[in-house]
Amino acid sequence: MPIAVVRAEAYYLPPPPPRGDPHAWDGMPAAERVFHWIEYRLSRRTVIPTSVIPDVPPVYARINQNRWLGDCVCGAACIVSPTDPRYGCTECGYGWVELVFPEDVATVEAEMLLTPQPHLRNWWHPLDPANPYTPQPEPQPEPEPEGGTL
């Protein structure tokens, strides 16, 4: 059975017993899990954003080595989930911004499973300005000068 593409709710988990309840985060939105995980796992206090930053471009989700990632303007990244399309940064404190996933997440994840090695599973949103694989338009042939050639 192939390894599924990793989402935030499968990666950012609460502390194991006896320190914690394994179901303590079951009702927590996926985008907020990273903040709690950073706090307990790295012992670093983080502040969960309380509002959406207006008039900023969205963050485009991508798959990098079999993980859904969101990249911050500061250069940090975290694992994200299509179940909660928000992105906030634990490094610089960048508040909630829209997180854009493909229209058909299941199809993209199914395509990733066709590559047997999880570390080779990579995908970029076609509208992401950071996408290094943006298709280039085919060059148009130059029109012939009027009157023929000399």
Rank of each mutant, 00 (worst) to 15 (best):
G95V: 05
R33I: 01
I79S: 05
E111G: 05
T90S: 03
E146F: 11
P135Y: 08
W68S: 09
W68I: 00
L113D: 06
P137I: 11
L120F: 13
H23V: 10
V47P: 10
M28W: 02
P22S: 12
Y87S: 00
E98P: 07
G75W: 07
L13R: 14
P137R: 08
R45V: 08
W68D: 06
G95W: 02
R45T: 01
V5E: 01
P2C: 04
L13V: 15
Q65N: 10
V5F: 07
V5I: 14
P54T: 07
C92Y: 14
I48A: 08
T46G: 04
G88L: 02
R41C: 06
W96S: 00
D55E: 11
G93P: 01
P57H: 12
H23G: 10
E103P: 12
Y87L: 06
D21F: 12
H36P: 02
W124D: 09
V73S: 15
P85G: 00
L69C: 07
G70H: 01
F35K: 08
L114T: 13
R67G: 00
V59T: 02
P132Y: 12
G147E: 05
D128M: 08
T134I: 09
P141T: 07
P14S: 13
H125G: 12
N131S: 06
E39C: 04
N64I: 01
W25K: 05
P116D: 15
T83Y: 06
T83N: 08
H23W: 13
P16M: 10
H23E: 12
Q65Y: 03
H119Y: 13
T134S: 02
S81Q: 02
P116I: 07
H36A: 15
T134Y: 04
E39F: 07
T90Q: 02
P18Y: 09
Y60P: 03
Q136M: 05
R62N: 15
D21I: 12
G148S: 04
R19E: 15
V105Q: 03
L113V: 06
P15D: 11
S51Q: 14
G75P: 05
E138S: 14
R121F: 05
V59R: 10
D84G: 03
Q140M: 08
R67V: 02
H23Y: 12
E109K: 01
A31R: 08
L99N: 04
S81G: 03
H125F: 06
V47K: 14
G93L: 03
Y12F: 09
L127K: 12
S51M: 08
L42W: 13
H36E: 07
G95M: 01
P132G: 08
E146G: 09
A77N: 12
P141D: 05
R33S: 01
D21N: 13
Q140N: 11
P137S: 11
L69E: 07
G20A: 15
Y12H: 10
L69K: 11
G20N: 10
P29V: 11
C89K: 04
T134M: 04
V47A: 15
Y40W: 15
P17G: 12
E103D: 14
Y40Q: 09
Y60Q: 02
I79L: 14
P18T: 13
D21H: 09
T149H: 11
H36D: 03
T107M: 04
V97E: 03
S51Y: 13
N64G: 12
G70W: 01
L69H: 07
H23M: 14
T134D: 05
G27I: 09
P49M: 14
L13W: 06
R121V: 05
T134V: 10
L42T: 03
